[in-house]
Every structure is written in C-alpha cells, then in structure tokens.
Amino acid sequence: MKKFIFLFPFFILFFVSCSTSEAPFEHRYVINLVLKPDMKFQRAFVDSTYRLDSSLDSDLTGVSGAEIFIVDEHSDTFRYSESDTLMGLYYSNDSFCVERGMEYLVNVFIEGEIISREVQVPGLLTIFSPGLLDTVYLSAPPLLIWNTCEHCFDNTYLIASYITGEADSADKYAPMLTTDTTLGIFFNRLLYKEKDTMYTISVEAMDSNAYHFGKMWYEYDELKEGEVIGLIGAIAFDTVAVWVRE
C-alpha cells in the first residue's frame, strides 16, 4: 500500500501530459442576405471562414463567383449581380422588389454547393407615434406606438435608436426586444445624453431566421456540422426621426 502511494505523483504526471490537442480548422461558407421591403437594391455578402493562424488582408476577403437566385411565390426568379468594387458583395437589380408578407426561396450556388433557404417577409410595419421630426422631452417622453405586424416571428420587435446620420452611434444605444406594440419607458437619461439632437428610432419585425440570429447576436459564433454560417432572412421596419430635448 505504501509503495502504491508513492507511485501516485508519477501516475498523475503521465496522465496530465496527455492533454487533448487543438481541434482542426473548419471551412464554412458565410452568407449574409436579408430581404427588406422598400429597398431599391437588395444586398448579399458571400464569404468563408479563415484560419486563425494565417495572415489575411481584411479588404480582400469575400468569395467571388457565387450565383444567387431569389424565387418568389409566382415562380419568378431574380438573379443577383456580383460587385466589381467589393469582393463578396452581390446586389439585386431594380426589377426585384421585395413584397411584404411574401414567401421567397433563396438559392445560392458556390463552387458546386447549393444552399437553399425559405424566407417569409413580415407584413407592413408603421410607427404611429411620435410623428416625424416631433420634439420629444426626456422629462415627459411620449409613447412609441406601432402596428401589429403580420408574420412577425414570435410577435417580437427589435427597437433601436441612434443619432441621425451617425451610424457609429447605433452601437451606443443597445437595441431592445419587446413583444408589445407600445413602449412605456423609452428615453433613458443615460443613453440620451446628447440633448437637442436628432435621433432616429427604428422598429423591426423579423422572420424566424433573423429573429434567432438577431435576438442575442451570438448564434454566428457556433460552428455546427455541415451548416452555412450567417443569416439568410427578412425584416420589415419603419423609422422615425425626432428631436430630443431636455
């Protein structure tokens, strides 16, 4: 027994040295294609995963040579064109207009692979209050009111706000989810520090894909067997610009 005890440290050293090695690299395609009603051009990005240990020029990422087709409920097919200026960017021409409430089939052909997704575009979404360019006061904020949107997945809306014209400011104003169509508490003293400024408020309704992708912004980071990464989905939205004052 005593001899056995003294063998323990060597036993441990042996096993601790048997640590599992790093997992291998996984290649996947990364597609971002969100159908939005009322947009003149629909955009898509086609990219892939890259090794963490190899050097890359970020501006030269993207996958060219992909074919993107959208098929609507009437079996009409629309094709995206590849951008000459930005690798991996594809866009639709003006003959394709995304209609609210319609179902589409998205087909992407890349290097012999076919990726297909069905997408249900949410219905009409309109903000009723406040009105465009209304002045709103932090001390007495008005209700934000919009309509119930058909085909809005889980009846959940994503609300965001940012300083009008400053895309970067959107990061500072964490988007919120709600299942109501009114917002009781809206203006937060901390978030709306810059007074006498024009803010844009947006309300989004999402299809199932966009909902699951956008709800916590994390689904992107898990590699699942055989799955394409990214988002092929649809949203409907409305925005309103207001003056925010103390």
């Binding site: 997992a23 996947r28 990005f45 990219d47 892939s48 995963t49 090794r51």
Partner: peptide
C-alpha cells in the same frame, strides 16, 4: 476551442 474566424457583418 475556436476553429476558424470570419467577418461578422
């Protein structure tokens, strides 16, 4: 572990 990286748009 992280297996790869990609551009998050």
């Amino acid at each position: 572990t992280d297996l790869a990286r990609c551009r998050y748009r």
